[in-house]
Design a binder for these strands. Structure first.
Lengths: 142, 142
DNA sequence: TTATATGCAAAAGCTTTGCATGGGT
DNA sequence: ACCCATGCAAAGCTTTTGCATATAA
């Protein structure tokens, strides 16, 4: 949907991973490429594993490890929903949040300047240096 | 911290549970009382069970069932963090959100009118009839 | 009396870890 | 060579379920 953002993130992620002393293993590379392609909206570890399996590589353990490592580097955002963790690429230029349609389970992503401003104002009032924040809306779409 | 809110919620919860055909079992009653007392800020199922055990009652199964039932009735709010679910009483008069200090793990609750207004505006723009929403801030308190 | 509640133990679901092997640099 | 990465299987944790028993109404 935004080829430039994909490439930008992928290159950034690969550089960052290398800096951190990581090597170009097949699974983590594939995870990064998959997320750059389809990780603009939340995807679960199981989904990632399934997709990699289609290409003949990937195990649960390696996928979880790769996701954890990338998340630790701040390259991924993780959203916990029930007992499932889902990930998406952390792209400062495409900051957004999610609204869940309770009827269909569909997830709509959105961004809103006024909302961001309100959050920053709250953080300032609380004396918090924010490192991240999440907003989840739930309801029915008309 | 707000005795009136506790009693208000507890009475409301008991009435609502009775309406739903639930009986006054020992565990669910104790869970409601505990939450009315200490559930103004997030508490986990394990913590609830431990507290009840001190009083000689409660099992994991019953506590989970009680929490699920109360949540289904809209009496509790659930916040998922990692693989842990935590609950607090849903009190419309004390609507609030949470900020997590990443250094200490401490959870600070806050409420903010401007933030709520921004959220409602976003929902309207998206065409969502909101049933609930969550905001989680993470960072370092100075 | 009859449907709900409870407890124990077992199962389930997602995630993590141990360990031997394979692979990048 | 050295250390990181991977896969499998086993373990871990939280949560759910089955089932027999106890209890509220």
């Amino acid at each position: 949907v935004d080829p430039e953002a994909r490439d930008r993130w992928l290159e950034h992620a690969q550089r960052r991973a290398a800096q951190a002393g990581m090597r170009a293993g097949a699974v983590r590379m594939a995870v990064m490429e998959l997320l750059a392609r389809d990780g603009q909206c939340l995807i679960s570890a199981a989904q990632v594993t399934a997709r990699l399996r289609e290409g003949g590589i990937g195990s649960t353990a390696s996928v979880y490890r790769a996701l954890d490592q990338l998340h630790a580097l701040g390259l991924l955002r993780r959203v916990d929903e029930g007992r499932l963790a889902r990930y998406e690429i952390a792209d400062p230029l495409h900051h957004h949040h999610h609204a869940v349609d309770e009827r269909t389970g569909e997830i709509v992503s959105f961004s809103d300047a006024a909302l961001e401003a309100a959050i920053e104002a709250v953080a300032a009032r609380l004396g918090f240096a924010l490192s991240s924040h999440d907003v989840v809306l739930r309801g029915q779409r008309r």
